[in-house]
Design a protein around this nucleic acid. Structure first.
Length: 519
DNA sequence: TCTAGGCATGGGTGCCTATATCT
DNA sequence: AGATATAGGCACCCATGCCT
C-alpha cells in the first residue's frame, strides 16, 4: 500500500488502490461491493461486521483524547485485515508461482506486469530475447461488436457465450507479435491467416509465442477444472486448485488487452486489432447462422448472443457454430423474462431459479444514491415477477408513489441520499467543476486528506445555484437539509423510468411535490 | 508503469436567440 | 430606436463507472 495507514470512509479505508484490484481478481463477485470499505468487504466475505465507526468519528475521539476507543477501533481493523489476507493468500501464492514474480511483488503488480512477467518466463523457455520497452504514441482501434437490443420485456431468452473467445481466436489464427507479417513482406497467401476487415496477416507456421502460451494456459485450466470435479469441495486441495484455475484464467484473459497496451514489451497494435476483428467476424457469423435457423436475436455483446429460446434449435445452433467456426460456444443461462431498454449494455432478467440479474443499470452503479438504486431494484423485481405486465406496472407505480411520500415526510435516512464518486486526479487537472470535486476541496480545507483513488460521499442540499454549489460532505449534513426534490426528480424517477418506459409507461402519475401540484 | 475498446448518463460549459430593461 | 443584460434552449464536452 502506497501511503500511511489511512482509515477513511471517503477513501477505501485500508483496501485502497492496488489492494482492491488484487482482491477482485480472486473474488470477482466483490465487484458487487460498490463502496469497498474494510467493513463492507469483511461483511461480504462473511467475517462479520464490526460496529460502524467512521473516520469523522475517529477524529472526534482524537480531539476528546479517547485513546481507548481509538485503540479498540484499530484492533478491530487489524484483525479484519488479517482475516481478509488469509482468504486471499492462496490465490496470491498461485499467481506468484505461475507468473514468476515474488509473492510480495505479484501482489502489488498491475495486471499488465503480471502478464508481462509470465510471458518473459515463457519466452526464456523458448530461448527468445526479451524485447525492450519502447516509447510509442497511443493509437486506438476498433473493438468488440455490440448489438442494439430489442427494447421491451421478453420471455424465454437463452444466452450463448463463446468460451474464452479472444484467447481461442489468437490460438486458432496463430496471432502473435512474432508471426505478424508486415504489409511490405511477400508471403504466399496459403501460408497466411488473414484477418477480416483489417487485413493483417499472420504466419500459419510455426506456432507463435502467444499461441504457445495461450494453448498452455487454456489446457492447464481445462485439466484443473476436470481435477476440481473429482476433488472434495472445501478440501485443501480443492481450494488450491480453484485458486490456481482463477490465476490462470486472469492471465489468459488479459493477454489480448496486454498486446494492445502501449506500455507492453510485446505491444503490437495489429495483433490486438486483428483479434478484435476476428471476434466481430465470429459473432457476426454466429448471428447469421442463428437467423438462418429462424431464431430471433434479441441482443449480443462481443462474445455473446441472446436468442429467443427453443431447445431443439439452440442445441443445433451450438453444434453448427462449433463446426463452422472451430470455437467452443456454450448455453450460459436462460432468462425466464428479461427487460431491455433502448440502450446497450443494460438489462435486467429473471433466471429460472428465481434470482434476478441486473446488468449496467443504475442499481449496479456505485455512483447512484441508495434511495434510487433500491427503488429501481424493487421496480425490477415487481415487473419481472408479476405475471401480468399491467398489474406489475400498477404495483410498481404504487411503490414509487409511496416511496416519494416517505421521502417527503423525511422517513428515509440520510445514508440513502449519499452519492459516492471517486476523485481520479488532482484538483488542478479537473477542467470542469463538479460536485464531488468541490466536496473534496471542502474536505481538504477542513484538514482531510483526499487524494486520487479516494471516494467522496456527498449529499445535494436545498438552496440555489449549480449542483456543485450545493453539495456537501455527507457528515456535514442532516436529513432536513437534503434537497428531496432533486433526489425525486433527478435520481429516483430517472432510475425507475429506465425500467418502466420500455414497458410503455410515459409518466408515473405521482405528485412530485413541485409547484405543478398546485395547478 | 498500473491490460483493451464500447457505451450510457448527468451535469457543466459555451454559444445562440429571444425577450426584457435601460439609455 | 438602439444598446445592453438576462433567461432559456441546445450542442458539445467532461467525468465516471459500467460491460465483455
Amino acid at each position: 500500500m502506497k501511503s500511511e495507514p489511512h482509515t477513511s470512509v471517503y477513501g477505501h479505508v485500508s483496501v485502497t488502490g492496488r489492494a482492491n484490484i488484487d482482491l477482485m481478481d480472486f473474488a470477482e463477485d466483490l465487484y458487487e461491493v460498490k463502496l469497498k470499505t474494510l467493513e463492507n468487504v469483511a461483511e461480504y466475505l462473511g467475517l462479520g461486521r464490526p460496529d460502524d465507526i467512521e473516520e469523522h468519528e475517529l477524529r472526534e475521539m482524537k480531539e476528546k483524547g479517547d485513546i481507548d476507543s481509538i485503540a479498540e477501533f484499530s484492533r478491530r481493523r487489524v484483525y479484519l485485515i488479517r482475516e481478509i489476507g488469509d482468504k486471499f493468500i492462496e490465490y496470491a501464492v498461485q499467481l506468484s508461482q505461475i507468473v514468476g514474480l515474488p509473492l510480495d511483488h505479484v501482489a502489488s503488480a498491475a495486471v499488465g506486469f503480471r502478464v508481462e512477467w509470465f510471458i518473459i518466463r515463457e519466452a526464456l523457455g523458448r530461448g527468445e530475447l526479451i524485447p525492450q520497452r519502447k516509447e510509442v504514441s497511443a493509437e486506438t482501434y476498433v473493438g468488440g461488436m455490440v448489438l442494439s437490443p430489442r427494447p421491451g420485456i421478453h420471455s424465454n431468452v437463452a444466452v450463448l457465450d463463446f468460451a474464452s473467445m479472444y484467447p481461442n481466436i489468437m490460438v486458432l489464427n496463430n496471432i502473435s507479435p512474432d508471426t505478424y507479417i508486415p504489409p511490405d513482406e511477400e508471403v504466399p497467401q496459403e501460408e497466411c491467416n488473414i484477418a477480416p476487415e483489417v487485413g493483417h496477416r499472420f504466419r500459419k507456421e510455426p506456432p507463435g509465442l502467444y499461441k504457445e502460451i495461450l494453448r498452455k494456459l487454456l489446457s492447464a485450466r481445462k485439466e484443473i477444472k476436470e481435477a476440481l470435479a473429482k476433488v472434495e469441495e472445501n478440501s485443501a486441495e480443492h481450494k488450491l486448485l480453484a485458486a490456481r484455475e482463477k490465476a490462470i484464467k486472469v492471465i489468459a484473459n488479459a493477454t489480448y488487452g496486454y498486446c494492445g497496451w502501449i506500455g507492453a514489451r510485446w505491444y503490437m497494435k495489429p495483433v490486438a486489432e486483428a483479434t478484435a476483428a476476428w471476434g466481430r467476424y465470429t459473432i457476426g457469423k454466429a448471428m447469421e447462422i442463428a437467423r438462418k435457423m429462424g431464431l430471433e436475436i434479441i441482443y449480443g455483446d462481443t462474445d455473446s448472443i441472446f436468442v429467443k429460446y427453443d431447445t431443439g434449435k439452440v442445441n443445433k445452433l451450438l453444434e453448427e457454430i462449433k463446426r463452422e467456426l472451430s470455437l467452443d460456444i456454450k448455453l450460459e443461462r436462460i432468462f425466464k423474462r428479461i427487460i431491455f431498454t433502448e440502450a446497450k449494455k443494460r438489462y435486467a432478467g429473471l433466471l429460472e431459479d428465481g434470482t434476478i440479474d441486473v446488468v449496467g443499470l443504475e442499481f449496479v452503479r456505485g455512483d447512484w444514491p441508495k434511495v434510487a438504486r433500491d427503488a429501481q431494484k424493487k421496480v425490477i423485481e415487481i415487473v419481472l415477477t408479476e405475471e401480468n405486465v399491467e398489474n406489475g406496472i400498477r404495483r410498481a407505480k404504487e411503490y414509487v408513489s409511496d416511496l416519494i411520500s416517505k421521502m417527503k415526510a423525511g422517513e428515509i435516512p440520510l445514508k440513502h441520499y449519499i452519492i459516492w464518486k471517486e476523485i481520479t486526479k488532482s484538483a488542478e487537472e479537473y477542467k470542469a467543476r463538479a460536485p464531488h470535486v468541490e466536496v473534496a476541496r471542502i474536505m481538504r480545507e477542513k484538514g482531510w486528506r483526499v487524494q486520487p483513488g479516494d471516494k467522496v460521499g456527498y449529499v445535494v442540499v436545498k438552496g440555489s445555484g449549480k449542483l456543485y454549489q450545493r453539495s456537501l460532505p455527507y457528515f456535514m449534513v442532516s436529513v432536513e437539509d437534503v434537497d428531496i426534490e432533486y433526489y425525486i426528480e433527478n435520481q429516483v424517477i430517472p432510475a425507475v423510468m429506465r425500467v418502466l418506459s420500455p414497458l410503455g409507461v410515459k409518466e408515473l402519475g405521482v405528485a412530485t411535490g413541485g409547484l405543478a401540484d398546485f395547478f
